[in-house]
Simulated scan of single mutants.
Amino acid sequence: MKPEKYVFWFIFVYICIVTPVYWLMSREIAGTFVLGFTGLLGGMIAAYLTLTARTFGPRPEDRGDAEVVDAAGDVGFFAPKSIWPFWAAVTVSVIFLGPALHQAWISLLGVALGIWSCSGWVLEFYRGDYKH
């Protein structure tokens, strides 16, 4: 994880240098805060990668003597098919449709739909064909 760690530390340091320069040149508050928080996010990711690299040691991708088989194994579990992302997208659309039409009840309907769709997505593998 060394290359990733160095990239994010560079982002952190660079943004920390650029933020005060931006403030001095523009005197604009919103952009200064956005740059500052961007630097903090880069620092958080860099710190996480630094701590994780110490815990796990070098990955096969980071070693020069590694073979392809060293990185073999389970990548993760992926759903074969699911309708729940579609319902989550419909939920977000309905929630944002309320303010667009100046109708709060549509957003409340979207929140109710969101509770249903989020529950279905989270509990997808506890029932049906792909039950664990």
Rank of each mutant, 00 (worst) to 15 (best):
Lys2Asp: 14
Lys2His: 14
Pro3Phe: 06
Tyr6Ala: 02
Tyr6Arg: 04
Val7Ala: 10
Val7Asn: 08
Phe8Pro: 04
Trp9Met: 10
Ile11Met: 12
Ile11Glu: 08
Tyr14Asn: 10
Ile15Asp: 02
Ile17Met: 14
Val18Phe: 10
Pro20Gly: 05
Pro20Lys: 03
Val21His: 01
Tyr22Lys: 08
Trp23Met: 14
Ser26Val: 09
Arg27His: 14
Ala30Trp: 12
Gly31Gln: 09
Thr32His: 02
Val34Asn: 11
Phe37Ile: 15
Thr38Val: 07
Gly39Asn: 07
Leu40Lys: 01
Leu41His: 06
Gly43Val: 07
Ile45His: 13
Ala46Ser: 15
Ala47His: 01
Leu49Ala: 06
Thr50Ser: 14
Ala53Gly: 08
Thr55Pro: 02
Thr55Ser: 08
Phe56Lys: 15
Gly57Tyr: 12
Arg59Asp: 11
Pro60Asn: 05
Glu61Gly: 11
Glu61Tyr: 05
Asp62Tyr: 07
Arg63Gly: 05
Arg63Ala: 09
Gly64Asp: 12
Glu67Cys: 01
Glu67Ser: 06
Asp70Arg: 03
Ala71Lys: 06
Asp74Gly: 05
Val75Glu: 13
Phe78Ala: 09
Phe78Asp: 04
Phe78Arg: 01
Ala79Leu: 11
Pro80Lys: 11
Pro80Thr: 09
Lys81Leu: 03
Trp84Tyr: 15
Ala88Asp: 06
Ala88Thr: 06
Ala89Trp: 14
Val90Ile: 10
Val90Tyr: 03
Thr91Cys: 13
Val92Leu: 15
Val92Tyr: 08
Ser93Leu: 15
Ile95Asn: 02
Phe96Glu: 07
Leu97His: 04
Gly98Asp: 12
Pro99Glu: 09
Ala100Lys: 05
His102Leu: 02
His102Glu: 09
Gln103Gly: 00
Ile106Lys: 00
Ile106Phe: 02
Leu108Ala: 03
Leu109Asn: 03
Gly110Arg: 00
Ala112His: 01
Ala112Tyr: 03
Leu113Ser: 05
Trp116Thr: 06
Ser119His: 09
Gly120Val: 05
Gly120Arg: 07
Gly120Ser: 07
Trp121Ser: 13
Val122Trp: 13
Tyr126Gln: 12
Arg127Tyr: 05
Gly128Phe: 04
Lys131Pro: 00
His132Val: 13
